[in-house]
Design a protein around this nucleic acid. Structure first.
Lengths: 221, 221
DNA sequence: TAGATTGTTAATCGATTAACAATC
DNA sequence: TAGATTGTTAATCGATTAACAATC
């Protein structure tokens, strides 16, 4: 929606240090999601039109976004899925491994821990916490649930960059405060609570209903 | 990202039949999410700046979006939360009740059925289905889990407009096909599978990792 | 009144798209 | 070769934002 700087300039074939615009970064991340899944499903090449069908982004826009960073496609064929995944990861600088702490070992937390949605994109859940003493020590998604008291230590030692909050609304703010105190800079909020955080911390609130309202509007009109 | 038509024109104070642009509709839905929660938390008024803090949309943009439909705010005070919720619901034509069918009574399905994320926005889960006979008949989120065989009938009788798929990847396409056959036009996909559907059906795939990649990019740069 | 915040303008910038030559 | 699809141009349109008068 807003725009910080121009897309990366790569007239010399190399990535410059310039920041991507918000729109480009958001779209690249979406392409990456589809490509990652296409790869898992055994697809070797994909056309801009196919990518468009899955992402709802115009195919010209996709080619334009990609061609700004290099000539990744083959005319008449499309893009190699494998190589495009690597290229976009490089562009988004998220080629490495990033560590996540999951807060909440309830139904939602368990569902998240057991899924591959994060792992597929290089996010590793390195620790699961719960405030409920009866849950501490149990195993969820292959991990032992820890007590909240260990949060600070784990965030520091494991270099956790993202905290995922999967608890009821009433408990969310308290956990957000603890994450902030521990030094986490990105919070992914699965509760509906409006979280108060310092300006240097980014909160992303999951909002399936928003997407649904949006889809419904275009269905109804 | 793309744009279909101009924002609604309301020089006469009434909503015209014109479609909102994709961007405006998406932002209005986001405002609605925050407003709905703010209302639950007892907030009576909210300023464009506060809305901006929660949605990451520029405050001028917010005032501009809203002023296109009427003068909803009070200078020096802000917007009345209650009345703004009603106004946006009217603009998005989602003031009514809409029925959802949930497919999958596993961990994720149970978490969704037990939460209020959909109910808060007028979406009612009217039926839960599972292909596993051992789950059929059990109670999840106050509802009895039904057999997939009843899908067609329920969709027709209950006027289901949205199908939510909360099953493992391998089962997702089969369920999408059944939803399409039953006449559902909007599918909310919590699996990672790339779903094939006819053009008149809209698929929205949940993608927390995409949002995370995006947030991470701006954190890293 | 004084302070705060809306509603609106005007200017800029980026996003979007059709179209098509290039080329695999 | 013939068909398909990329890469790129050029033109348009919408989004974004600072700034500020209006006004609660």
């Amino acid at each position: 929606m807003t725009s910080l700087g121009s897309p990366v300039d790569s007239t010399n074939g190399e990535l410059t240090a310039e920041r991507l615009s918000l729109g480009v970064a958001a779209r690249l991340a979406r392409y990456l999601q589809v490509l990652t899944q296409a790869k898992k499903e055994g697809k070797e090449t994909i056309s801009s039109q196919e990518l468009s069908d899955y992402t709802h982004v115009n195919s010209t826009q996709i080619r334009r976004d990609l061609s700004g960073f290099g000539k990744f496609g083959k005319r008449g064929v499309g893009y190699n899925v494998d190589s495009l995944v690597s290229q976009i990861r490089k562009i988004l600088r998220t080629a490495g491994q990033h560590n996540i702490a999951l807060l909440g070992a309830g139904r939602l937390g368990t569902a998240i821990a057991s899924s591959e949605i994060f792992a597929d994109h290089g996010f590793q859940i390195v620790a699961i916490f719960d405030a409920d003493p009866s849950k501490v020590g149990s195993t969820v998604g292959g991990q032992t649930v820890r007590s909240m008291e260990n949060l600070d230590q784990v965030v520091g030692e494991e270099e956790v960059v993202v905290g995922v909050i999967a608890v009821p609304n009433v408990a969310a703010q308290e956990l957000a405060d603890q994450l902030v105190a521990a030094g986490v800079k990105i919070i992914f909020n699965y509760s509906e609570a409006l979280l108060q955080v310092p300006p240097e911390v980014t909160v992303h609130t999951s909002s399936p209903a928003v997407d649904l309202l949006y889809a419904l509007y275009f269905y109804l009109t």
